[in-house]
């Protein structure tokens, strides 16, 4: 099947089976490797992308479900975005494999809840990290809040 998808503001024509998850369209067709494969079952969040600003686990999202929505991947995040900046400032990543998903989940969280409480952070950040960078992620989200000036 032929599809035209919008990724990071650019239109791409791809030809894949209708059940192909967005993750594998990004990785194998478009060679955009920042979005990671880990559990393949929507359990861990390593493959998180934003579809019209909402976090979606792309390993379990068939391309046929996409209808002209905007897909944003880690490659599309502005380099000076407050979340990216905060992540660098805090030196959050260890192995780094889950961090694309963590960063995009944080972007979506702060978009919806600019000044989140601890509970809101925990509820909004369901992504797993085997290295255990959770304490630094929490601090980076707080810092990103400060950087955007929306913080208390």
């Amino acid at each position: 099947m032929k599809y035209s998808i919008l990724v990071n503001g650019q239109s791409h024509a791809v030809e894949v089976d209708a059940d192909t998850p967005l993750l594998w369209v990004l990785r194998d067709q478009l060679q955009m490797n920042g979005t990671k494969f880990s559990c393949g079952a929507g359990l861990c969040g390593a493959c998180t992308v934003l579809i019209d600003g909402k976090p979606v686990r792309s390993c379990s999202y068939p391309i046929e479900n996409l209808h002209n929505q905007q897909v944003m991947t880690i490659e599309g995040l502005e380099r000076n975005h407050s979340v990216a900046q905060a992540w660098r400032e805090m030196d959050v990543p260890q192995c780094g494999y889950c961090q694309s998903g963590q960063i995009l989940s944080a972007v979506a969280l702060l978009e919806k809840t600019p000044n989140p409480t601890d509970e809101q952070i925990q509820a909004g950040m369901g992504n797993l990290c085997r290295c255990g960078t959770y304490p630094e992620i929490k601090r980076a989200i707080a810092l990103a809040t400060d950087l955007t000036g929306k913080g208390a």
Binding site: N33, R88, P93
Partner: peptide, 19 residues
């Protein structure tokens, strides 16, 4: 860390990312 930039913009090459 020397690897933070690459690990925050999707450019770090893991084994999975070799093309």
């Amino acid at each position: 860390r020397v690897d933070t930039f690459a690990k925050t913009d999707g450019s770090a090459i893991f084994g999975m990312d070799v093309q």
